[in-house]
Design a protein around this nucleic acid. Structure first.
Length: 271
DNA sequence: AAAATTTGACCTAA
DNA sequence: TTAGGTCAAATTTT
């Protein structure tokens, strides 16, 4: 029932990577539906292993719950332009629709510890870190104490067809990125590939390989205003670890890694 | 003190 | 113009 859309916004990008040409529109985007289990209805976000910084909230027309906007905490320090927005489902408040945009290029992400690997489950128990939409329950102390169990159903679409079976809890479908567009971008933007996402990242990440790796071009993503951010751009990564396009092999590898990949969130978050 | 969130203003695509 | 997305100052949290 949890489905996820997955699409790449229109690619209106021009080859000219001349400084200002960065267009976020071409960032990969996919939606993820996260169900919150009974105990943790109170708050409403689940930690996906990255650290996010909220930067806005908006009431959405027709939606009863506001939508909140997050960006990677390390946007400035590591030039990581991943963002996500969280929207609580209208009818089923236990579902949170999380739309991710862009892939993480930050390294330390958020994992204080390597993944303990506790396979066998399709449910992670997570605590929350982020804020919730309702300011009513901001008592984070309380929240942190109640360890919430989240049922996370993550369904990722990849540009490659996976043998749908194997993932059990992880249904994969094959939507596809418009190969051309994405690849083009990679070519254009990634003369320098990104250091891969953190080795031990939960759910989404291990799939991120399938996401077009497009880091912001080291430096020129000015938007509207003069951002004092330019400083960090320099420190952007240029290490060429994995090639941006490794997907095919990766799919198999991931299958094998799969068991390990699962981490026991509790371990992590038990302060 | 620094870092994260809140929230209205601001920007822009439709 | 509107609705959605982002910025940034003020505020709160750590």
């Amino acid at each position: 029932m949890l489905l996820q859309i997955h699409e790449v916004d229109q690619m209106l990008m021009i080859p000219s990577f001349s400084g200002s040409g960065f267009c976020r529109k071409m960032l990969p985007r996919w939606t993820d539906h996260v169900r919150v289990t009974s105990e943790n209805l109170l708050e409403g976000t689940h930690d996906d292993g990255y650290s996010w910084r909220k930067y806005g909230q908006k009431d959405i027309l027709g939606a009863k719950y506001p939508r909140s906007y997050y960006r990677c905490t390390y946007r400035h320090t590591q030039d990581c332009w991943a963002t996500k927005q969280v929207q609580r489902s209208d009818e089923d408040p236990t579902i949170f629709e999380i739309t991710y945009r862009g892939t993480h290029t930050c390294v330390h992400g958020n994992q204080p510890v390597p993944p303990p690997a506790s396979p066998e489950k399709q449910e992670y128990k997570l605590t929350n870190l982020n804020t919730n939409n309702n300011q009513q329950l901001q008592s984070q102390d309380i929240l942190s104490n109640l360890r919430k169990g989240l049922t996370v159903n993550t369904e990722m679409a990849t540009s490659f067809s996976f043998p749908s079976t194997s993932f059990g809890w992880l249904k994969t479908e094959n939507h596809s990125f418009s190969p051309s567009g994405v690849l083009d971008n990679n070519n254009i933007l990634n003369s320098f590939s990104s250091p891969f996402t953190s080795p031990a990242t939960p759910e989404l990440n291990y799939f991120s390989a399938s996401q077009p790796q497009m880091n912001s071009v080291g430096g020129m993503l000015s938007t509207q205003n003069s951002e004092p951010d330019l400083k960090e751009l320099i420190s952007a990564n240029t290490s060429a670890t994995n090639s941006p396009i490794i997907d095919l092999d990766f799919s198999l590898d991931q299958l094998e890694l799969d068991p390990n990949f699962q981490f026991d969130a509790q371990g992590f978050f038990s302060s």
